[in-house]
C-alpha cells in the first residue's frame, strides 16, 4: 500500500494556529504521528482537540501553520490528502433517510472505491451491521449509527484514521471491536489519531499520547509499558501499548 511521500510521517502538523474571533483555539500546535501507530489526543473540553482533527481532515482552514497527510500538504494537495483520510466526527455524517447500504454506496462513489459492492459487504460485516444493511439509518440505535459512521470512514481503506471520541455511544462489545479494529489498523502499517476523554480506553489503544491544553501541546510521549507524558492535568496513568 502506498503511504504517500517516502519518509514522511502519516500525520504531521506544524505551527497550527486557529482563532475564532478573538478566541485562540490552537496556539502553535506541532504534532507528528509515525506510520503504524495509534495516537491518542487527551485534553479537557475546549482544549482544541476537535478543531485540530477538523483541520487535519481538511474541514477547517488553519490561520497559520501547515498540515500534511502522508507527506501531502492539505493546503496544496487537498484532494490527494483527503483520499488518504477516514474521518469520524461527533455527528455521523450520514443521511438518515437513506439505508446503511445506500449511504455507503454514495460515499464509495465520492471516494472512487473500486468493487464497491464487495467492499461495502466487508465493512458492514466488520462492524456487525450486515443484517441492518437495508434499513434506514434513522431506524438504527445511536450506537449502530456510530458503527455505520466508522464503516463509512474505513470504506475507502484510508491510510490515516481521524476519530473524534469514537467510543462515545458504543456499548462495551462495540468498544472492544473498535479496539481490535485499531489494533489491526496499526499492525497493517496504517495510522490513527483519536481523541477521547476515557484515559482507560486511551491507554489501552495508544502507541503514542498527546496532551492538548488551552490550544497548546502540553505533553507528548510514546507509550511503552507505564511510560506516560509528565503532565499534571489529564494524566492518563499507567498504560500498555
Amino acid at each position: 500500500m502506498s503511504h504517500g511521500s517516502s519518509g514522511s510521517p502519516a500525520i504531521s502538523a506544524a505551527g497550527l494556529r486557529k482563532d475564532y474571533g478573538d478566541r485562540s483555539v490552537l496556539r502553535g500546535v506541532d504534532i507528528s504521528v509515525p506510520w503504524g501507530q495509534t495516537a491518542v489526543l487527551f485534553g479537557p473540553n475546549g482544549a482544541g482537540k476537535t478543531t485540530l482533527l477538523r483541520i487535519l481532515a481538511g474541514l477547517s482552514r488553519p490561520d497559520a501553520g501547515d498540515t500534511h497527510i502522508a507527506g501531502f500538504q492539505m493546503r496544496r494537495s487537498g484532494g490527494r490528502a483527503r483520499t488518504l483520510v477516514g474521518f469520524v466526527g461527533h455527528q455521523t455524517l450520514l443521511y438518515s433517510d437513506l439505508t446503511c447500504r445506500e449511504n455507503l454506496v454514495f460515499y464509495a462513489k465520492l471516494y472512487g472505491v473500486e468493487d464497491s459492492a464487495h467492499r461495502i459487504g466487508r465493512v458492514l460485516e466488520r462492524l456487525n451491521l450486515a443484517d441492518r444493511a437495508d434499513r434506514r439509518v434513522r431506524t438504527l440505535s445511536h450506537g449502530m449509527q456510530k458503527r455505520l459512521s466508522l464503516a463509512r470512514a474505513i470504506l475507502h481503506e484510508p491510510a490515516v484514521l481521524l476519530l473524534d471520541e469514537p467510543e462515545s455511544g458504543l456499548d462495551a462489545d462495540s468498544v472492544a471491536s473498535l479496539g481490535h479494529l485499531l489494533k489491526d489498523w496499526s499492525t497493517s502499517g496504517k495510522s490513527a489519531l483519536l481523541t477521547t476523554h476515557s484515559s482507560e480506553i486511551g491507554q489501552a489503544w495508544a502507541d503514542r499520547v498527546f496532551i492538548l491544553e488551552r490550544g497548546r501541546l502540553a505533553g507528548e510521549s510514546p507509550v511503552h509499558g507505564n511510560a506516560l507524558p509528565t503532565q499534571s492535568a489529564s494524566r492518563p496513568g499507567a498504560a500498555h501499548g
Binding site: 455524517l93 450520514l94 471516494y111
Partner: peptide, 18 residues
C-alpha cells in the same frame, strides 16, 4: 438543511471531490 442534520456536509467536504 438536509446536509446539516447529521453533519453530512462535513462528509461531502471531507471527500476527495472538488
Amino acid at each position: 438543511a438536509r446536509e446539516q442534520e447529521q453533519g453530512a456536509l462535513d462528509g461531502l467536504l471531507a471527500a476527495p471531490v472538488s
